[in-house]
């Protein structure tokens, strides 16, 4: 198990518990009551820590190395998954995985950024940072969905679109812009879930939908707290402050009306009970599809656009001309 810095109190408790269990198993002394008490203490401590997370702590949790990624959820939630590859122009971007699958009886297109569980996998998936091909691959899948009337489900988890030279040459900006444009007009339901990191345009590039949800311990922002610190504070040392200032947590995003709902995670984070998390997600998707599938496509698109139309805070000053 990996413990994050703010989880240190849990680490010592877990260690104690493990030791007690070991001693107990060896059969010398009956420690059952002590173990139960300690387990209780662990649960309480965890609840206590997790009920008061700072923005930065959520960011850390969203990057937890054991956190379930897109491929895990696809595997758990869907059946008969057929992975699709390539953008038909340049190559197959491994930072985005997706394909056609069944959720219950419903055929869907499901896709998202994939990070990878081992160092090797992480490199293979480019740490979940798509190149333009990735966004074009995603759009190609979404267009298939539109043509055959499958709803689209996107799982967002990226530290950002890849900031490389080739990405610029092949039009990173154009690829993302095109997706925003096309997703706004997709004639099928589009559900977006932030399952980890929602960093900037790289996240939004697969994130325009009828409904957008965030898992409890994720973040969504115009910039990562580190980059924000480096630009606005001119130093890398203010990431915690930046994370607070950016108000990037799920509760903030809900309060701002920029997302539709928060999906609760098991106490301690999705990685502690990934199967339970996947189950929650699956039943949530099923419920959403039931609501969105019967709607008239034009009406759905109109609602989608007017939802985004309303986003923004400003003031009206002085007299309105005319």
């Amino acid at each position: 198990m990996v413990f994050l810095e703010f989880e240190k109190p849990l680490e010592s408790l877990t260690e104690q518990l493990d030791k007690l269990k070991q001693v107990s198993e060896e059969g010398d002394i009956d420690l059952a009551s002590t173990i139960i008490e300690l387990e209780k203490k662990l649960v309480e401590k965890r609840k206590e820590i997790y009920s008061n997370l700072t923005g930065w702590q959520r960011v850390q949790l969203s990057r937890h190395p054991e956190r379930p990624y897109t491929s895990y959820y696809i595997d758990q939630i869907t059946s008969k998954f057929v992975e699709l590859h390539g953008d038909r122009f340049i190559k197959d971007d491994k930072a985005i995985v997706g394909g056609i699958a069944k959720i219950g009886n419903q055929s869907v297109v499901i896709l998202g950024q994939q990070k990878g569980n081992t160092t090797k996998q992480r490199q293979y998936h480019n740490f979940g940072m798509p190149n333009p091909e990735g966004y074009r691959k995603a759009l190609r899948m979404m267009k298939i969905a539109e043509k055959f009337n499958f709803p689209v489900i996107t799982l967002i988890d990226t530290p950002g679109a890849y900031p490389g030279m080739e990405a610029e040459e092949r039009g990173q900006a154009e690829a993302i812009a095109k997706n925003l444009f096309e997703m706004a007009q997709l004639r099928v339901p589009v559900l977006c879930y932030v399952i980890g990191e929602g960093a900037s345009g790289g996240a939004l590039g697969i994130g325009v939908g009828d409904r957008v949800f965030m898992l409890e311990n994720t973040w969504y922002s115009v910039i990562s707290p580190e980059s924000c610190s480096s630009i606005l504070w001119r130093s890398w040392d203010f990431k915690e402050v930046a994370a607070e200032s950016l108000k990037l947590t799920a509760p903030h995003m809900l309060e701002f009306g920029l997302i539709d709902e928060i999906i609760r995670e098991p106490v301690g984070g999705a990685h502690l009970e990934p199967e339970k998390m996947a189950k929650t997600l699956k039943s949530h998707i099923t419920k959403q599809l039931k609501e969105l599938m019967p709607m008239d496509p034009d009406e759905r698109i109109e609602q989608r656009i007017s939802k985004y139309r309303k986003m923004g805070e400003f003031e009206i000053v002085g007299q309105v001309k005319e």
Binding site: L180, A184, M311
Partner: peptide
């Protein structure tokens, strides 16, 4: 923050 991000979608 995210408000400015959403202007892209808007």
């Amino acid at each position: 923050s995210a408000f400015s991000l959403m202007q892209m979608a808007k």
